[in-house]
């Protein structure tokens, strides 16, 4: 399962097994995003119909949660923890300029690595005790 698989002809195959689940909407949206990297806007009416919800219900959940997105992601994702424990260890000095399409840089509020602060996550890989120099190396070492 790699993110950004091609969209299947019938979007429903992505989440057919979840339709009967109680409270299925959030798991369905997370599944779509896990497969495609994002939730394409034209999936909203499909999900609404499959779960017998209104489009507003689906759009409402999609817009509420930080993790869910309606746009394709950049190739690489850097998330820098901006919460207190990382601030106490100088996370303000961790600054990286995003590169459209290639690298997105987002704040995250706590990765639970507060005793190994400051912490970042790059393409899912956790790093603690990060310095500005190490962070620059991580970013420079990202594959094209």
């Amino acid at each position: 399962m790699t993110p950004q698989d091609a969209s299947p002809a019938d979007p429903r195959v992505l989440f057919a097994d979840l339709i009967g689940e109680p409270g299925a909407l959030l798991p369905v949206l997370l599944r779509i995003q896990a497969r495609l990297g994002f939730v394409p806007p034209d999936y909203v009416p499909v999900v609404a119909e499959a779960l017998n919800l209104s489009r507003a219900d689906v759009q409402g959940v999609l817009s509420f949660y930080t993790d869910l997105r309606s746009e394709p992601p950049a190739r690489h994702a850097l998330r820098i923890c901006r919460a207190e424990a990382c601030q106490a260890m100088g996370s303000d000095a961790l600054q990286v300029t995003p590169v459209p399409g290639r690298l997105e840089v987002e704040p995250v509020y706590c990765l639970g690595l507060c005793a190994c602060a400051p912490a970042v996550v790059i393409d899912g890989a956790l790093h603690g005790r990060v310095t500005p120099e190490r962070l620059a190396t991580f970013v420079a070492d990202l594959p094209e």
Partner: peptide, 9 residues
Amino acid sequence: ESLEGKRGV
């Protein structure tokens, strides 16, 4: 609310 699949209100 979130477990029910809704916005976490």
